Simulated scan of single mutants.
Amino acid sequence: MTDYGHPITFGLSLDPAADRLPETRRLARAAQAHGLDYLAVQDHPYQPGHLDAWTLISHLAAHTETVTFVTDVADLQLRPPAMLAKAAASLSVLTGGRVTLGVGGGASTDAIAAMGGARRSRGDMVTYTAEALQVMRAALAGQGVRLASEQHTIEGYDGGPLPPRPVPLWLGSQGPRMLAVTGALSDGWISPLNIYVPPAEVPAKQRRIDEAALAAGRRPSDVRRVYNVIGPLADAAHLTEWALELGFDTFVFWPTDAPRRQLDRFAAEVVPAVRAAVEAGR
């Protein structure tokens, strides 16, 4: 049994398709009304039909008041870390702290290169990501940043503005080296969708994160655990098991069709059932 003791939280993944914007706005407001904790937006800017994630989040933030937004996940190779920290700090100030920064090394080398990003090897991408997390951590704390390495050249950035509360840095990862970076340097692990990382594969990945956290002088519980769960409707029994047995504390629901109906059922039936069952199980 692995349970890191964090509060159980829930989010909804919003489709960034440009032609679905009116529905996306309605879903964002409905998720807030249901009391969900997070609204998540994927970041695939090389998709012609997708709105830019940061622009969409900024727009939706103006249509909501309490829910927190998370990039799930921002592509670090297309969003340099000092600039990404600036954007996150700015949005945090504008929204009263409603920002969690989920980042990743980048899912598609070809797509990144097609937009002008560097074509990095897998090893270089891991190094780039680890250094980027440290850059963002310092910048979000309002510190000065200088870094001259093979992957980054930052000649002197003064971080700011200071967010009203710390912006968590969650890292999307799957391979062993990136999972180690997650444990050593991030505030949370964002697992890919449950169809890509099925439950049977999770314990080994959690152990890798835990070992890296301990080696870095941290506690495994310093890292939150986030599972992206695709519909048609997440099952309360499965989510409870994944919280108590696999260690996940946050579930981001990705509806497959009829998203408003699925959201209403998820928030009204699944969320309270999971919270009650996890509390009883603990």
Results as ranks from 00 to 15, higher is better:
Met1Glu: 12
Met1Asn: 10
Thr2Gly: 00
His6Met: 09
His6Ile: 09
Ile8Asn: 01
Leu12Met: 09
Leu14Met: 08
Ala18Pro: 00
Ala18Asn: 03
Asp19Ala: 11
Asp19Gly: 01
Pro22Asp: 09
Arg26Gln: 13
Ala30Pro: 03
Gln32Ala: 10
Ala33Leu: 13
Val41Phe: 08
Gln42Ser: 14
Gln42His: 06
Asp43Ile: 10
His44Lys: 06
His44Leu: 10
His44Phe: 12
Gln47Ala: 11
Pro48Cys: 02
Ile57Thr: 13
Leu60Ile: 04
His63Gly: 00
Val73Glu: 03
Leu76Met: 15
Leu76Gln: 14
Leu78Asn: 13
Pro80Trp: 02
Pro81Phe: 09
Ala82Met: 06
Lys86Met: 09
Ala87Arg: 14
Ala89Asp: 07
Ser90Thr: 15
Ser92Lys: 12
Gly96Ser: 04
Thr100Ile: 06
Leu101Tyr: 08
Ala107Pro: 02
Asp110Gln: 12
Ala113Phe: 11
Arg119Cys: 02
Arg122Ile: 14
Arg122Cys: 10
Met125Asn: 14
Val126Ala: 15
Thr127Ser: 12
Thr129Val: 07
Leu133Asn: 05
Gln134Asp: 15
Gln134Val: 05
Val135Tyr: 12
Arg137Tyr: 00
Ala138Asn: 12
Gly142Ile: 08
Gln143Phe: 04
Gln143Thr: 05
Val145Cys: 11
Arg146Asn: 03
Ala148Leu: 08
Glu150Val: 11
Gly156Ala: 06
Tyr157Val: 15
Asp158Gln: 13
Asp158Gly: 02
Gly159Asp: 03
Gly160His: 11
Pro163Asp: 08
Arg165Asn: 01
Pro166Ser: 02
Val167Leu: 04
Pro168Thr: 03
Leu169Ile: 04
Leu171Lys: 03
Leu171Pro: 00
Val181His: 13
Thr182Asp: 02
Asp187Tyr: 05
Asp187Phe: 02
Trp189Leu: 00
Ile190Tyr: 06
Leu193Pro: 03
Pro199Asp: 15
Lys205Glu: 05
Gln206Trp: 08
Arg207Trp: 04
Ile209Pro: 00
Ala213Gly: 08
Arg218Asn: 06
Arg218Leu: 07
Pro220His: 12
Pro220Lys: 12
Val223Thr: 12
Arg224Asp: 05
Val226Thr: 11
Tyr227Asn: 05
Val229Ser: 08
Gly231Gln: 11
Pro232Phe: 11
Ala234Val: 01
Ala236Glu: 12
Ala236Asn: 04
Ala236Cys: 02
Glu241Pro: 01
Phe253Thr: 01
Trp254Leu: 15
Trp254Val: 14
Pro255Val: 05
Pro255Arg: 04
Thr256Ile: 07
Thr256Arg: 06
Arg260Phe: 06
Gln262Cys: 04
Gln262Arg: 13
Val270Ala: 00
Ala273Cys: 00
Val274Tyr: 05
Ala276Ile: 02
Ala277Tyr: 01
Ala280Asp: 13
Gly281Phe: 01
